[in-house]
């Protein structure tokens, strides 16, 4: 009971801090906070599918890029919220299209397939843009950064609620059963194919909207950058480091990576990626449950 009260108090405190941040911090730190919120939103949405089912997707960059592309194409020709919703639905529709064939394969095949499809989508967009004789699209009159920050905060909260709710639900139990053993999951009555596709589509919506917000912030759409597989790799890293079995993990993972990159990018940029690689390997080998998983395991051990 005491622990629960503590959790609720810290959630409220963190939310208040994020809501108040634009009044307190300067533009630079607001940018860092935006990074953090987008990291949380993206990683939560990844965990909602890949964390729970064990189907490691390297395709999140596609959904992110597709959302950004929709925004770049429609900006100033429709209302902001309409484009944001369209971005989310475009990403979700793409997930439905990709998911149906891709979710038939498991393990390393699924990983490679999602990476391949992601690269394919990138080059399709590049080809379209080349055919339209466009070399990058500039977005004019984009909203105020503080406004975009609040949209991102909303997305981070929504994504956290999505993962939290899904992980606790009957469907979440079904998704975890799929991760453990797909055949056995069928024998206990889990509608395996339906659940996988449903979770994949749900998990694609958020990155679509995040990509759309992000391109408004950078005000420039360039497919190589917005469809870059680095987005997917960063998300997986955050999930592995934070823990991928529920909503708390991604918050720890995103915070860890954003703080680390703030500390190191400026001072030792060459060292940053090396350290990230070492950390990723160490977590996979020694702390596969991630920071949050390890913390709960330690707490349980102390209680027992």
């Amino acid at each position: 009971m005491k622990e629960r009260a503590l959790t609720i108090v810290s959630i409220i405190a963190a939310l208040a801090l994020f809501v108040g941040a634009p009044q307190i911090v300067n533009a630079y730190w607001l940018g860092v906070a935006l990074q953090l919120l987008s990291g949380i939103a993206l990683t939560q949405s990844w965990v909602a599918f890949s964390g729970l089912t064990g189907y490691v997707s390297l395709g999140h960059a596609v959904f992110y890029g597709a959302g950004a592309y929709v925004m770049a194409l429609l900006w100033q020709s429709a209302a902001l919220w309409e484009i944001l919703v369209a971005s989310g639905f475009t990403a979700a529709a793409l997930a439905l299209l990709i998911g149906y064939p891709a979710l038939r394969v498991r393990g390393p095949y699924f990983v490679i397939l999602t990476l391949g499809l992601s690269e394919l989508c990138k080059y399709v967009v590049i080809a379209i843009e080349a055919a339209l004789e466009s070399s990058g699209r500039l977005l004019f009159d984009t909203p105020d950064p503080v406004f975009l920050y609040y949209i991102m905060l909303l997305l981070a909260v929504l994504a956290t609620l999505l993962t939290w709710g899904l992980a606790r639900s009957r469907w979440g139990a079904g998704l975890r059963a799929i991760r453990e053993d797909e055949t056995a999951a069928s024998t206990v009555g889990v509608p395996v194919t339906f659940l996988k596709i449903m979770a994949f589509v749900l998990s694609a919506f958020i990155p679509g909207v995040v990509g759309a917000v992000w391109v408004l912030r950078t005000t420039f759409f360039e497919p190589m950058q917005l469809f870059s597989p680095t987005t997917s790799f960063t998300i997986v890293t955050m999930a592995v480091i934070g823990g991928s079995d529920g909503a708390p993990g991604p918050i720890f993972g995103a915070a860890f990576i954003v703080i680390l990159s703030e500390l190191l990018w400026a001072r030792a940029p060459q060292f940053y990626l090396v350290l990230l690689g070492i950390l990723l390997i160490s977590f996979v080998l020694f702390i596969p449950r991630g920071i949050y998983g390890q913390l709960t395991a330690l707490a349980q051990r102390r209680r027992a």
Partner: peptide, 9 residues
């Protein structure tokens, strides 16, 4: 109850 038990490890 499938062959090889197939528990969720």
């Amino acid at each position: 109850v499938p062959e090889g038990r197939l528990v969720f490890p």
